[in-house]
Amino acid sequence: MISITNASCVFRHASGREVRALDRISSTIGDGEFVCLLGRSGHGKSTLLRSLAGLNTLTAGEIAVDGRPVKGPGIDRGMVFQEDTVFPWMTVQANVEFGLLAQGIPAAERQGVAREWLDKVGLGRFGDSWPKELSGGMRKRVAIATAFAGGAPILLMDEPFGPLDYVTRRDLQNLLIDLWRSTGRTIIFVTHDIEEALVLAERALVLRAGRIVDDIRVDLTRPRDEEERASPRGIAISKTILGHLELEQHTPGAA
């Protein structure tokens, strides 16, 4: 279980201006949940995710996983980045093995586990390929396999499908749902795309100006196809989220 207590993070710009990226956020995320963090860019969702990963230090408050405070990156939390982080200088197989190598697992076992995960993401035949020989969508599959093969019970995903085309994106969303259901791991997924949240999430946390403004249970039935998302409940959720995201009180002229 992840518990976030009064998490705050203040960045100081070079100009001296302070930016409050996280503002006393509190929440708990249970084991095996699929949570989407939604929000417009610059409203703290990536900061929260990076804090969960331990790549970012909080200025106040605490994040704990199973009661142990997060002090830095750890093998209990895996991450899939928005950028292409598949190491281009390693073969696909070596990439997937990397987390296991870092954990000091012997070579034979490493190879077995990595092959298994490559099969699961549909890249069984590409173990010996260089990443440059793969398409962008296939490299994302490698990144997902790497994160899952590392064995972390919690997986953090920072807009991983952002730069992909629509169809590839849908494929990868389905793949991710399959993997989530078959492994029962906790997934925290950052996105700015409401439709993506509707397809994936069990629960949506909406962030605005560094605070959680809503915690929505996405209780749609699976598969979350076009009809399901267009159901009255689906549309209601969309509207609620959209309301949080877009309808800021902008009054021109008022300071």
Binding site: L55, P73, I75, M79, F81, T85, M90, L101, T146, A147
Partner: peptide, 29 residues
């Protein structure tokens, strides 16, 4: 070298030495 390579390695459990010799060094070749 993009910082997310080193970050990615550290979330997979790599320590400073491993990041140096598996990420920075080959990435600089």
């Amino acid at each position: 070298l993009h910082p997310s390579f080193a970050e990615s390695a550290s979330t997979l459990g790599a320590g400073p030495w491993m990041i140096f010799h598996r990420v920075s060094l080959p990435g600089s070749v």
